[in-house]
Amino acid sequence: MTRRIIVLAAAALGALGLAGCQQDAGTTTAKPSTPASAEAVASAPASASAKPSAKASGSARPSTGTKEAGAVPDICKLMSKAEVQTLTGESVTLMTDDGGSSSTSRYCQWQLSQGQLTITVSLETRENFDIRNKQAQPVIGVGTTAYSLAGHLYVWQDGRDVDVYVSSESSDPANLSVARRTALQLLPRLEAASK
């Protein structure tokens, strides 16, 4: 009999504990994390999808951007294959366009004879953009603000987060140099196409 009472008491305490946990779960005040970029959804290789880890640990508010929905133009139309070849020094073997499936994020990827160039543009608030991983390195002279992390160059300008990933060169500094030149060429076109 005593054993049965102990088992029932333990079961009752367990049920109360679970009920308390479920009640607390409904009242959590944690902010949602930043949505994944189109790059994470795209067929880019794993090394190109470092954007989620680029943000500092801790969560950010969902991106609302300062541009209205649909303000992200087709990236593949802003740069020709010949320009990509000139920037990277490699032949373009395949170009992949996102097809405009999202009104707030677009990407274009050029597979090269060696490596790739991927550009992703997403609507983003400056506040969310400024949440960074401690390993991010500032990059001066590109956009309003820019930094590099894990082989990516992230640039914020006028409500947009521009992510340029290059893997055609033999070193990270060389890839960053190509990414920087690419961003400098793309940013004015992006602004003009969005007006």
Rank of each mutant, 00 (worst) to 15 (best):
T2F: 07
T2H: 01
R3P: 00
I6T: 09
I6W: 14
V7I: 11
L8P: 06
A9Q: 12
A9P: 11
A9F: 10
A9C: 12
A10L: 12
A11Y: 08
A12R: 07
L13T: 08
A15G: 09
L16F: 06
G17E: 00
G17Q: 03
L18V: 07
L18P: 03
A19T: 06
A19Y: 03
C21G: 10
D24Y: 08
D24N: 10
D24I: 11
D24L: 15
A25I: 11
T27G: 07
T27Y: 07
T28F: 00
T28E: 08
T29K: 12
K31D: 12
P32N: 12
P32E: 10
P32S: 11
P32R: 14
A36V: 04
S37H: 02
A38K: 02
E39V: 07
E39P: 01
E39L: 13
A42M: 05
S43Q: 13
A44R: 02
A44M: 06
A48F: 04
A48S: 09
A48Y: 07
A48N: 02
S49H: 05
S49W: 04
S49A: 15
S49Q: 15
P52H: 14
P52L: 14
S53I: 08
A54D: 10
A54C: 07
A54P: 00
K55P: 04
K55Q: 14
A56V: 03
A56Q: 13
S57H: 14
G58N: 09
G58T: 05
S59T: 15
A60R: 14
R61Q: 11
R61D: 13
P62H: 12
S63G: 04
S63R: 07
T64S: 09
G65H: 05
T66E: 11
K67S: 08
A71F: 02
V72K: 01
V72S: 01
V72P: 06
I75D: 00
K77V: 13
K77C: 12
K77Q: 14
L78S: 01
L78D: 03
L78R: 00
L78I: 05
K81N: 15
A82M: 07
E83G: 12
E83Q: 14
Q85I: 03
T86N: 15
T86Q: 15
T86Y: 05
T86V: 14
T86M: 14
L87K: 00
L87C: 08
T88R: 00
T88Y: 00
T88Q: 02
G89R: 07
S91N: 11
S91Q: 10
V92G: 06
V92R: 06
T93S: 08
T93N: 08
L94V: 02
M95E: 15
T96K: 10
T96R: 04
D97P: 02
D97S: 07
D97H: 05
D98E: 05
D98F: 03
D98Q: 03
